[in-house]
Each structure stands twice: as C-alpha cells, then as structure tokens.
C-alpha cells in the first residue's frame, strides 16, 4: 500500500498554474524522483505536500489519512520530514543543536521541567543528544558538533539538513536537491545514504538535478514540465520517453552527456 498519495494536486500563483493536476504515489522503501527543468514546479509541489503551501486543488494523503490542509508541524508528527533546496538551517545554533531541534517531537515535555531543569527534562534531552550524535556521525559531521552551523560549508549544511530531517524518525522523507553544490565524493555519499534509508523502509521523494544519481537510485520517476506531469515510470522508460527528451533531457544535452560519461 502506498504511504503517500498525491492526487490531482494543483496551485495557481497570480493566474499562473505553477503546478497543475499532478498525481503519483510513494510506497514505503521506494525512491520516487521528481524531475523537470528549472521552474517546472518541483519545489512548489514539495511545499504543497509538506503543508507549507495550501493546494488550490487536489488531495494529499498520508497513510490513508487526508492531510491536504494539515500544517507542517502536524505532518511531522505523522512521520513526514523534509529538507530544503535553499537551505533552512538554524544558523545561530550549534550543529548539534540543529539536529536536536529535529528531535523536538520526542524530547519535548512539560514547560516547567524545561524552566527548572528538572531531571525529567535532562533525561529527555540526554536521550535526544545521544541520537543526534549518532546521526551526525552518520553524515560525518560529528567533529563539527559544537561549531555554529553558520560556519559550515555548503556541502556540510546539506548533510546537516538531512541529519536534522532524519532526527524525526520519518516514515517518508522529502529531499529537495540534497546533492546540489556537493562534490563527486559528497554526492556519492548522499547517494549511498538515500539507498540505505530506503532499504530501511523509509519512503523517499526526491528532487534532484544530478541525472546520474536519479537514474541510478530511483525506483520510479515523475517528470514535470510547466507544472504538469508529462511522464512517469521507471528510469529506463522515462529516459526513452520522447516528450521527456524534448522537454528536459533534450534541452540539456550537456548534462545528459555528462551523466553518460
């Protein structure tokens, strides 16, 4: 059964249909990629699914529940987590605190315990801290734990966002260009991490421009152009689709050639 079902989703900004009638589904352990040229509506689609934009039309359901109007913090409680294309890091917090913020749902408790530093608060925080250090090790940021997040490199911040998103213990993870701005080694690491997460049963919805990565790790690809879904299928089918080649791969020959080489 599908974990996330997107059905006829659409939104209009000032008369422009940014996303129009897009449908697809993601099952646990599946990696679904959304691709398309710049401005195709990929990030807008993500923002609607994650509750940041309210869709004009259509429905989103998570685990069989209609979550179309559900605010982001409620979606987080239901197991949906995401990263951002234009980094949304808590710059003035340490790297460790950034990931700890991701543990908010498990470490939160009575406000009185927090104000008076009661033992119950310290136990909750210690448990979260242990998990956060583990996640930082997983994205190779454990040595930077006490640094201010604002001082990290772009690639490191990308990994920090993934660690923070994983702190929720998500059932479904939306990754918006996780490998953008990363070097070959970093992108391969992210690639491997995504595959591991999917193998652990997390549903992955991915927006990525690195075609090589998309073709290699996706189970299913949804192609958007001008806000509409023009094709979907497994990587082999999509890469042969004439409409896709015309709209996307064809117009970016250089990138296609790079991916093949």
């Amino acid at each position: 059964m599908s974990l996330l079902v997107v059905d006829g989703l659409g939104i209009t900004f000032g008369g422009l249909k940014a996303v129009d009638d897009v449908s697809f589904a993601v099952a646990p352990g599946e990696i679904v990629s959304v691709i398309g040229p710049n401005g195709a509506g990929k990030t807008t689609l993500f923002n609607m699914i994650s509750g940041i934009y309210r869709p004009g039309r259509g429905r989103v359901s998570l685990n069989g529940t209609d979550v179309t109007e559900t605010p982001p913090h409620k979606l987080a409680e239901m197991g949906l987590s995401r990263t951002f294309q234009n980094l949304q890091i808590f710059q003035d917090m340490t790297v460790l605190d950034n990931v700890l913020a991701g543990y908010h749902l498990t470490e939160r408790g009575s406000i009185w315990a927090d104000l008076l530093a009661l033992g119950s608060m310290r136990r909750r925080a210690d448990k979260a801290r242990e998990g956060a250090r583990g996640l930082l090790a997983r994205v190779r940021l454990d040595k930077a734990a006490e640094q201010m997040a604002g001082n990290l490199s772009y690639g490191a911040l990308k990994r920090l966002e993934i660690a923070r998103a994983l702190a929720l213990g998500p059932k479904i993870l939306l990754l918006d260009e996780p490998a953008a701005g990363c070097n070959a080694v970093e992108s391969e690491e992210i690639d491997r991490l995504i595959a591991e997460l999917a193998a652990a049963g997390i549903a992955i919805l991915l927006v990525e421009h690195d075609m090589k990565m998309v073709m290699r790790i996706s189970n299913h690809i949804v192609v958007l152009d001008h806000g509409e879904k023009i094709a979907e299928g497994d990587p082999a089918t999509v890469s042969r689709d004439p409409q896709v080649i015309a709209a996307y791969l064809g117009t970016e020959n250089a990138e296609g050639a790079h991916a093949d080489g």
Binding site: S50, S81, F84, Q88, F90, M93, A101, L105, D114, M121
Partner: peptide
C-alpha cells in the same frame, strides 16, 4: 535552563527559520 532545553531549542529554531522549525514538528 530554558536556553538549553527542548522548549528553548524550539524557540531558537523558529528564530532561525520558522518554516524549518515547523517541519521538524
């Protein structure tokens, strides 16, 4: 106490990015 508590972290997180704070719950 509040600064280094779950509530304080949530407050500082929303200070940094309301959108990101909301998406972590």
């Amino acid at each position: 106490n509040l600064f280094d508590s779950p509530t304080g972290r949530a407050m500082r997180a929303l200070h940094g990015s309301e959108v990101a704070a909301a998406t972590v719950g």
